[in-house]
Amino acid sequence: MRHLLSTGDLSRDEATLVLDTAAELAQVSGRSVKKLPTLRGRTVVNLFYEDSTRTRTSFELAAKRLSADVINFSAKGSSVSKGESLKDTALTLQAMGADGVVVRHPASGAAHRLAGWVDGAVLNAGDGTHEHPTQALLDAYTMRARTGRVEGLRVAVVGDVLHSRVARSNVLLLHTLGAEVTLVAPPTLMPVSVHTWPCAVSYDLDAVLPKTDVVMLLRVQAERMQNAFFPTAREYSRRYGLDRDRLARLPDHAIVMHPGPMVRGMEISAEVADSARSTISEQVANGVSVRMAALYLLLGGS
């Protein structure tokens, strides 16, 4: 594979390879020299059309730990804000000799388009409401690190599935890795064809929680209220938010995940976010290892 655009493109072996590689590379974070020479002389461009400090710095750190030269190219204050098209930007990066382009873009499919315009590897760091493959990979990595496996895990993904690139990437990847995914949301926040996805669907969080090993909460933006996806934040929170009472319905071994940024008090209560069962800060740390693995596997060879 030349690019990482969708978790749907990963076979089980490939996905496992990313996780295994990440597990080895995680050691680097614990060493005094937190750097590997592997991508020395290679150039990685972070092309971010949306603000995302978390994802951008994670990719930046990953690339730097592999000794790549990193160029941050954000849409603000650049030629992009002066109306340059994605294609022209791509051709500019091409001319600069970018070996890898990490792209975050508000338009679904932007990473696919970019892959057609540049010779280097394209890593999708989130495209619109389509996919966010490295997030799903780090989520799977975190599940494996915490529970020892992914296969057979019962994972509930709760929240704005309709607009979530994290949900799409996770459903595809977790299915490939043999987990049993249940999507939980009000029907308005489910895609109309969700019954064709390789997962179960429920509108009742309380019924799902006792049969869940991993509960993954998705951010719910308050502006969805304006479009009548749900009546009020309070009602959403009451029906689908994870608070202490709901946490008690989970099996004792179950973990709570969130891709961040969280809306405390909406989809997750503060005490759940900060509880020992929450993997939220681990997910951030694991993100660097998984992105190192992706960068190495895409850029490290011929």
């Binding site: 499919g109 619109g128 409401t129 799409r168 109309v192």
Partner: peptide
Amino acid sequence: EGVVSDRLGLAG
């Protein structure tokens, strides 16, 4: 709007 739009994340 359908299976393809849902998968591609393009508004239906």
